[in-house]
Write a protein that binds this DNA or RNA. Structure first.
Length: 563
DNA sequence: GAGTTTGAAACT
DNA sequence: CAGTTTCAAACTC
């Protein structure tokens, strides 16, 4: 029964071995990096000049009316004359959210910096899967899942008005369900006219509506974003997606003219809404973690994070009992760990891994600094060149977008994927407080060789820790299994006395474990549970809450679980 | 899936 | 600029 778990651990061991040899698993990680790296680098490259002097509205509009594509990047036909760059990205890079999960910055129209691009842009490749192209602001929605391009259903607007999300986002309709669509290459003249007309009415029509903000995962809310125009809601309380602010994950601001607004900081309704979702999130995490670890993963075991659909009456579908098997649950299919791993354990595991990574990052940074000092006198020229290259990357974001400052995490995408979002924040803060503080993911990619070694080392450390945790889990499962089999044998031989048994959570009568030769009564299996995911030694956790990894120096974060 | 509600966009 | 209409997404049933 533990074979699946052993497989997991052995796979991790294999990965670690590969890292030691300086190789990567030739599977998903590579795909991840291949996809991600060029995106980031292109953003860095492209953002740089723009931030120097973005065109004014008038300039932009004139550029648009001139119809001149002079400033457009050369088209690179991706099938029907579309540019190689994802056009949506091309349009919205001024304000578009970055991949970092802690960033929201999404605008309702994550659109054009240059309105001429709207006019001229052959905007869309037939590629449908890019989340960057998604026109709506909830790109990194509260569920944190990347979302695909949304398809409009316009019927009467010919997709040439701002009613159309595709048009509003400056993209061609592609794979939409619209009727009589003119927002395509074939109708470029009409489309261009429509863009002009739209710009005439409102020169800011294709500008982002949402100012940048920072996602605070604890609150599941953007703290600093602001709707440039403000919403005008009357009946939704600004707590439904009708509200542009709510949809963009931002609080209503003084710009809004809404009535009976409940989308403000401290709003009970809003908190109830988000905390409810958070509970669901954590329950789902537990479910997935249990399934993954036990290997008892059904078809839904690794399904993408479920969208938080609402039931009738606005109730969220709750996963709260997803892992709590209320059935007798004694069959062989039930995992012995099903009642063992609690949400806080999952979080603790994440925390531990992050803390491990943080420590490793720190160590590596220190090492690197030492090496630098040593090398400085001899190879100062080369050293400065390297730092310049890092500096260039950092200079690429001079606009000070806080949300984009997820730099400082010398972790590979694969490792980052293992981290909880708010732990990424923490990691960022740890690394940002480093003396040289210049270890950003983008920089890591550009500063490839040494950094990739760091990646390997970091991943090795993290995976080693993960392996240890899983091993402990396996040990505990085996222990529990042995208890169960002991119980079964004893039950067959002679029913145990009532004093010998303890009612378990799942209804199993269980013999208290023998500890040091004495029978110790336990009311729940979790009481006996060994500390599977030991916190880092460097951290203190006197409060008993589940943030064992939080470095003491960091500002304390509220644990949403305990709220 | 159809019908309703909602609020932004468009229009007058 | 305010009021009205149109529109498509969000939501409900």
């Amino acid at each position: 029964m533990n074979s699946n778990r052993r497989i997991i651990v052995s796979n991790i061991n294999r990965t670690i071995r590969l890292h030691r040899r300086g190789r990567r698993e030739p599977v998903e990680d590579e795909e991840e990096e291949e996809e991600e790296t060029p995106q980031i680098s292109s953003e860095i490259t492209l953002r740089k000049p723009r931030s120097v002097s973005p065109p004014t509205e008038r300039e932009v509009f004139q550029m648009g009316n001139a119809g001149g594509g002079g400033k457009l990047p050369p088209k690179n036909d991706g099938g029907f004359g579309a540019p190689a760059r994802d056009p949506a990205r091309q349009l919205d890079e001024h304000s578009r959210p970055k991949p970092a999960p802690t960033v929201v910055t999404s605008s309702l129209h994550p659109v054009a910096t240059s309105q001429s691009q709207i006019l001229n842009a052959p905007i869309r490749l037939p590629r449908q899967e890019s989340p960057k192209s998604r026109p709506r602001p909830i790109v990194e929605g509260r569920d944190g899942t990347p979302q695909k391009k949304k398809h409009c259903n316009c019927k009467h607007s010919r997709c040439l008005k701002l009613y159309c999300e595709c048009f509003a986002s400056g993209t061609y309709c592609d794979g939409c369900n619209c009727i009589n669509c003119f927002n395509n290459v074939d109708n470029e003249p009409a489309r261009r006219d429509a863009v002009e007309a739209t710009l005439e009415r409102n020169p800011n029509a294709f500008r982002p509506k949402i100012a940048h903000g920072v996602m605070d995962k604890r609150e599941e809310m953007v703290l600093l974003g602001k709707h440039n125009k403000g919403c005008n809601c009357k009946k939704s309380g600004c707590l439904k997606k009708y509200c542009e602010c709510f949809q963009a994950n931002i609080l209503c601001s003084e710009n809004c003219k809404c009535l009976d607004c409940k989308n403000f900081d401290g709003s009970e309704e809003r908190q109830a809404l988000f905390h409810g979702e958070h509970a669901n999130n954590m329950a789902y995490l537990q479910q997935t973690a249990n399934a993954a670890i036990t290997g008892a993963v059904g078809s839904s075991g690794f399904a993408p994070y479920p969208a938080l659909k609402r039931r009738k009456g606005g109730q969220d579908i709750s996963f709260s009992h997803a892992t709590k098997d209320t059935s007798p649950a004694t069959g062989p299919s039930k995992s012995l760990l099903a009642d063992v791993i609690q949400p806080q354990d999952v979080k603790a595991l994440c925390s531990v891994l992050v803390a491990v990574a943080g420590e490793a990052a720190k160590t590596l940074t220190d090492k690197r600094n030492e090496n630098r000092v040593e090398d400085q006198t001899e190879t100062s020229l080369a050293s400065s060149a390297q730092e310049n290259s890092q500096g260039d990357v950092e200079m690429a974001e001079p606009d000070g977008n806080q949300a984009d400052k997820s730099r400082g995490k010398p972790l590979s995408p694969a490792t980052l994927a293992l981290m909880c979002d708010d732990e990424e924040d923490t990691m960022f803060m740890v690394a940002a407080s480093e003396p040289n503080g210049s270890v950003d993911p983008g920089g890591c990619r550009t500063n490839s060789q040494g950094q990739s070694q760091n990646y390997a080392e970091l991943e090795r450390v993290v995976l080693t820790k993960l392996r240890d945790c899983l091993s402990r889990l396996i040990s505990y499962a085996e222990f529990k299994e042995s208890k169960c089999s002991y119980l079964a044998r004893r039950h067959i031989q002679s029913p145990p006395a009532a004093t010998d048994t303890v009612k378990m959570e799942n209804g199993i009568q269980q013999v208290p474990p023998i500890v040091n030769g004495a029978s110790r009564a336990t009311t729940q299996p979790t009481v006996n549970k060994p500390q599977l995911f030991q916190p880092m030694q460097t951290t203190t956790n006197t409060s008993g809450t589940h943030h064992p990894h939080k470095p003491p120096a960091l500002p304390e974060k509220k644990d949403p679980l305990n709220q």
